[in-house]
Every structure is written in C-alpha cells, then in structure tokens.
C-alpha cells in the first residue's frame, strides 16, 4: 500500500443495528447509509457522489415489520412502498399512507424505495413524508447512546438537511391509528400520474364532526413548496371548526398561501405552485364533502 492508493468505494452489508453503529463510527463522514438505494444509486450512476463506504442496513431486522401497538402503528423504516400498499394494518389504520404510496415512482421503484429513506433524504418533494406529517407521526431515531422520538414534521431542517445526528439511524415510524371519523387525502400535481417528482403536493387529515361539513384536528402538509415538507398552520386554522361550504371553500383554501414559500425551478414556477396548492386543497376538500 502506498500513499497514492486512490480513495475507493467500499460496501458493508449490516445484519444488526450494532453492525451499522460500528460501520458509521469506523468510517465517519465517509459512511453513506443505503436502504432501497433509489436516490443514492442515481448519484453513483451520475458519478456525482464521491467515493464512500456504503453501509447497507436493509437486512437489519429492527427496520422491518408493521405492527399495531396500543394507539400506534409501528412501521419499520425499511418498509417499502409496496409493503405499505399490501399491509392490511395500514389500510385499516393509516389509509392515507397508502394513498400517497401508490403515487410514488412506479411499481419498480415502490419495490425498492423505503419510507425511512424518503424521510432521511429530507427532500422537500418527498411524497412519503407529507402523510406522516399530516397524521402526526413520530420517527424513532436510534444511536449507541439511546433512542429518541421526533415528530416527522420536525425532522427535516432544509433540503437534504435534518436533525439526524452522526451515528443516528432512522429505525421506525409511530403513526397514530385513525379514528372512525378521520378523513383525508393526498393530492399531488406532477407532469404525469406515475414516475414524476411532485410539483406541488397537499395532504389533508381531519376528524369529521358526524353529520356535518365540519372538521376538527385538521392537519395539512405540503410538499415541494418550501425548503422542507411543511405544515400549513394558517390553512388548518381557516378550515377547522367551521361548516365548509362550496362557495367559501376557495377563499378559505387561499389561507395556505401564508404557509408556503415556493421557488421557481425546472418543474414549475413559484406562481404556478401557489395557484396549484390552493387548487389541490380546494378540490381535495370538495371531493371529501
């Protein structure tokens, strides 16, 4: 071995959390976590990624499985979108996750991509994340020092940036199970139905007051309109606790404009995104009512 040995890629297949912690500790900033690989391998293919140690955690048992515990569904971070779609527990207790999962990528991508990877990459355009935010889900982050839980809406801090600390792994999601009067939608605008990155997405979750057009506990999450997936607090306020009438829905939905800060990019202009965010919210609510 000489000093001229080029830095090369390495690959470690981990079968336990301890393996992952060790790999990350040993390789520090060179370590790159791989789950489904649908984002990371694109970077490798384009040779945009510097040589690194690929730490594959998809075979770690704690990252798998969907189970119901008390008032939560516990969903392993390495659960693929296809597994979410096939889960009876998810369709019974968190159907909103399936509404979004079916719009992610294509069958081929849904068989690889994981919910944990979607959150961890902290893309503002992630389609798996807004339903987690709208449902008030928490994510469990585990390191050698212990376990902490963070609300999914507080996870990302900017594009590709998050609260994840060195040596910390996204292990599972805790999604509150839905109530019988809970309703919601995931609505995405893309250039086509499948295989498209969102131009705007709006996700709504609320508890319908039986026999009325009123919602309580409204939570709205938006994708591709801010540096992270964001809650739309103003819109939530404007749409909570009042009878939603078709005539006033457009005006109420415009409250979302105070919650979002879209930019112009290759997928759409800021102005288009603002108009479409209002439109998606209104048409989604119209369909529910």
């Amino acid at each position: 071995m000489t000093a001229q040995t080029p830095t090369r890629f390495g690959y470690l297949r981990c079968s336990s959390l301890e393996d992952v912690f060790k790999a990350v500790a040993d390789h520090g900033e060179r370590a790159r976590i791989v789950a489904g690989g649908t984002d990371l391998v694109v970077g490798l293919q384009g040779r945009r990624l510097d040589p690194c140690m690929l730490v594959d955690l998809v075979r770690v048992p704690e990252l798998h499985g969907i189970e119901k515990a008390d008032d939560c569904l516990r969903i392993g971070a390495a659960t693929t979108y296809s597994q979410l779609l096939e889960s009876d527990l998810v369709s019974a207790h968190a159907p909103l996750l399936q509404q979004a999962a079916v719009e992610v990528g294509s069958v081929q991508i849904r068989n690889l991509g994981t919910l944990g990877g979607n959150l961890a990459n902290a893309s503002p355009a992630a389609d798996g994340v807004p339903p987690l935010v709208a449902l008030g889900a928490e994510v469990e982050l585990v390191s050698r020092n212990g376990t902490r839980r963070v609300l999914c809406e507080n996870f990302a801090t900017g594009p590709g940036q998050s609260v994840l600390e060195a040596g910390e792994i996204v292990v599972a999601f805790l999604v509150p199970v839905c109530h019988e009067h809970d309703e919601g939608f995931f609505s995405k605008l893309g250039p086509r139905d499948q295989q498209a990155i969102s131009i705007v997405s709006v996700t709504f979750s609320g508890r319908r007051v039986a026999g009325t057009r009123r919602y309580e506990s409204v939570r709205i999450a938006c994708g591709s309109v801010a540096p992270t997936v964001v809650r739309a607090f103003r819109a939530e306020e404007a749409l909570s606790g009042i009878e939603l009438e078709p005539e006033t829905l457009f005006r109420s939905s415009r409250a979302i404009l105070a919650d979002i800060s879209p930019i112009d990019d290759v997928r759409g202009s800021a102005e288009y995104r603002r108009d479409q965010a209002v439109g998606l919210l209104r048409s989604g609510l119209e369909a529910l009512l």
Partner: peptide, 8 residues
C-alpha cells in the same frame, strides 16, 4: 419487478 440500474 425492479429497475436493475438502481440495485447495487
């Protein structure tokens, strides 16, 4: 079915 170009 998966896209083999995305599988290490």
């Amino acid at each position: 079915p998966v896209t083999a170009c995305l599988v290490l």
